[in-house]
Every structure is written in structure tokens, then in C-alpha cells.
Amino acid sequence: MTAAIAIDGLEVVFDRFRALKGVNLEVREGESYGLVGESGSGKSTLLRAITGLAPVASGAITVNGKALGKTRDKAFYRDVQMVFQDPYGSLHPRQTVDRLLQEPLAIHGISDGEKRIERALDEVGLGKGFRFRYAHQLSGGQRQRVAIARALILEPSILLLDEPTSALDASVQAEVLNLLEEVRRRRKLTFLMVSHDLAIITHMCERLMVMQDGEAVETLTASQLIGHRVSEDYTRNLLRASEGFVRV
């Protein structure tokens, strides 16, 4: 099986600060892969480096067998799309849902826009009634659904998810996670998902990498994590913390 994303010795440096210190990663095609870590671990930076939003200092990134250079071409963005963490910040405040979804189609010169927009809205469970609303007329969960529809409208094969539910209420989070699982199954997508929450990652992903301070701590399968078969203390700490407060 080929790798959807292969990363080798990736370094990202912001003004002398090394955000990523030589990270290796391989995500198989059709797989759902999780990145777990606390703030400053470099997990979001990794996603941004793939999309070209973070400056790569050294190392190689290969997506669907193609090595990526300094800049990304339009074809790349038809393969790889991203959903951001904060649904309140990722939708343009002056554009309707319709305009938001039309934009990627216009950029890529896709003609059957009308049909695609309706299908995308249906797919994320919003329906036609939401098409002409502005972002401020939507709830947090609805906004994140629109963001997912926008990411799906170019029919990518890889979806990068940067804490897609951490800004949402628990019950809305469940709905969005279910939606993500459903579109992955239907479209046979590859997921690379970032979260600070081990429970979400084990729920969504088959394999995961624990990160700390810009480095990989260890790579595990979800079942290893569930069975507590972990080798690093840091992972063990995270596991303990995710089980709630224990009076000492």
C-alpha cells in the first residue's frame, strides 16, 4: 500500500524557534491517523507545514507519491484540504455560506457548482435552508459543518483536521465526530487529525503519534493505547490525565 503522506526529518523554524525537530511520519492511504500532544508540542505546526502555511526549514514531505517543493500548486489543494479548530474564526464574516462554498469552485474553474453546493450541504446535514446565511446566523456546530462542506467540495482524498471539535460543546462534538466518520467511510478519505484529547483520537483514529516539544514521543495503535500498552512515561501521564481528577 502506498503512503498518502510521508514525512521525513521535518524541521520547522519560526524566528530561531524550532517548532518541529526532525519528525518522521507515514500515513497510509485510507487510514485515519492521530497526532496527540499538549500546547507547544508542534502537532498543529505539522499540519500547517504540510499545507504550506508553516515554513519548512528542512526535511521532505511527500503527498500521494509526489514530493512537495517550496510552494503548493492548485492540484495539491484538490487533494489535500483542512478543517480549522475555531469555527468562529474560519468563516469569512461578510460572506454567505453560498459565497464561501462557491469560492473554491470558482478558483478551480469547476462548472457544476450549483449541484455540488447542494450536495455538499446535504452531505454535512445542513440542507438548502442554510445556503444563504451569514456566519453569525449559525451556531458553532453549524459553522463547523460549513467548514467541513467547504473542505469536501473540491473532493480531496486527504483531510487534515486541526482540533475540529475542541471549541464545541460535548453534545455537538459527538455530532461532528460522527459526521466526520461518515464522510470518511463514504468518500474513503485519509484523515490526519490533531487533538489534545486522547479519547477523541482513540475514537477516531487507527494509529497515532504522541508528540512533545516538537518531537515524536512514540507511535502507537489505538488498541495499544486502549490496553495501556505504552512505553513512555509521558504517554502514561496523558492517559492518566484523561481519566479525570483523582483525589490524592
Binding site: A170, S171, A174, L177, N178, E181, I200, H203, L239, S242
Partner: peptide
């Protein structure tokens, strides 16, 4: 009950997650 249920938990595989029917 719905609020307790809808959170993913390590070691409890539920696909899809139960959602809250308000």
C-alpha cells in the same frame, strides 16, 4: 445522561457516538 454518554471514552468503542436528542 445524554451529556455523559456522548463523550468518547478510551476503551469504549461506540460508532457512531450517541448524540443528544434535545
Amino acid at each position: 445522561r445524554g451529556l455523559l454518554n456522548c463523550m468518547p471514552r478510551i476503551g469504549f468503542e461506540r460508532h457512531p457516538l450517541p448524540v443528544l436528542d434535545r
